[in-house]
Design a protein around this nucleic acid. Structure first.
Lengths: 235, 235
DNA sequence: ACCGCTTTGTGCACGAGTTCACAAAGGGGT
DNA sequence: ACCCCTTTGTGAACTCGTGCACAAAGCGGT
């Protein structure tokens, strides 16, 4: 749903990682950790020092058992009879997610959506920094958005190298997306967030996550129809 | 990912639907159908009349077996030795997804993101029509975006009733999201697309899908870290 | 009318993810 | 020091989704 959901990652890679101190965290769990993290942060802001799995699970919209199993995959950071220390858990999840490092992000395509993304506060949070905005349209080049000057997409390779960009955000029309993606990948970007309505083709080592509005709407439409058929059928 | 992916839908509802002529389509399959549909449309535009499961699967980024199984869940619409008729399959998937009906959409929150959503072409396609834009800020009320006048959120209930809105899009700040959601639900909206970074609480019969940028970024960060640890560990 | 080639539809086995239920573990009061 | 209450961490059963492999089914050429 998210856009749900939906990542690149092909192989369940059973390769023996360097020395895997932990049994490798499942994809489903990784997708939920950011939710827990957000909820924990709101708890911390409210001055709450400790939470039980049940409280946390309720706030995150999952079952308590699932939550405990998820957390157990990253270590034994709870106290039996008490719960989890909020601050400590925030730190541990941040560490596992890699948010203690910093990531440079480039946004390609400054249309309506790219504009909104550039101004999105979520980037500012822990670890992510938008280092450049890029567009193919010369008319937009030079414009300043959210404190960044829009640069021409010819400079894309240079920008990626210069800032050691690791995450590329594609907010172009669908027709340009694969080309932009190829260029990002060819100069070393290994993670892509794709907003264009196309299926991107990338080598195995590159992760792609897609956010697709019209897919989400169509999934909702399916359930809407299902519901209206159900009530009509019951009459 | 999707935005992951991530829907409301709680119970796997084993209730005997009205007369369920088909065995009910799995959630995972439903999430892929829109992708198939899009690919099929590009094929149709290229004048291609027939596709094999392998061609379609490649273009959609899935395995051929999975694709065939997905399609088999909605009927036997292929010809052995030949493949699938593009136009017919487009029609069948559209029908199953409920895109032959029309859905009225209201967008709540006209900030950067709401602005972009209002102008998004994806809404115009088959079945979805944005009937109103709503914001709580009086300064924005009256402004015209994409041919629609922004109205004050006090009028939300009236608008929903008047236009028989079935899908609500929440593009407000997180602090307002739950309140807006409650109001939408209380006047009959049964599908919500949530862009606010909060976990919405809704009754079981309401479907929520969330699109969360910062979650997607954090998932990418996890894999980035994993990759950099792997290469560092191999040295 | 038959034969061989291609491609679908699906039974089956496997693996991933979820849920249940409970033993182990810690805290606090007496 | 002991006991009771709460809550974690996890083994085990189960459900769901995926991928393989192959039989059934068309089509076209002879």
């Amino acid at each position: 749903m998210s856009v749900a959901v939906s990542g690149g990652h092909s192989a369940p890679d059973g390769l023996p990682r360097h020395s895997a101190r932990r049994a490798a965290i499942s994809e489903a769990t990784v997708a939920r950790l950011p939710v827990y993290l957000r909820v924990l942060n709101t708890f911390a802001d409210s001055g709450i020092a400790t939470v039980s799995s049940e409280q946390l699970a309720n706030a995150a919209g999952v079952g308590p058992a699932k939550l405990r199993k998820d957390l157990s995959h990253l270590g034994s950071y709870g106290t039996r009879g008490v719960g989890y220390d909020v601050e400590y858990l925030v730190y541990q999840i941040s560490r596992v997610l890699g948010l203690t490092q910093h990531y440079s992000v480039v946004i390609v395509g400054v249309g309506n959506l790219g504009h909104a993304l550039a101004g999105y506060a979520g980037f500012g949070t822990r670890g992510f920094r938008v280092v450049a905005l890029v567009d193919a349209d010369p008319a937009r080049v030079g414009e300043t958005i959210a404190g960044l000057e829009v640069r021409h997409s010819d400079e894309l390779e240079m920008i990626v190298k210069e800032h050691e960009v690791s995450i590329g955000v594609i907010a172009t029309p669908g027709s340009a997306a694969q080309d932009v993606c190829d260029r990002l990948v060819s100069c070393g970007v290994t993670s892509v967030l794709n907003f264009a309505p196309v299926v991107l083709n990338v080598p195995d080592e590159v992760d792609v996550r897609k956010v697709d509005l019209s897919i989400e709407l169509q999934i909702l439409a399916f359930h809407e129809q299902r519901k209206s058929l159900a009530t009509r059928g019951a009459s």
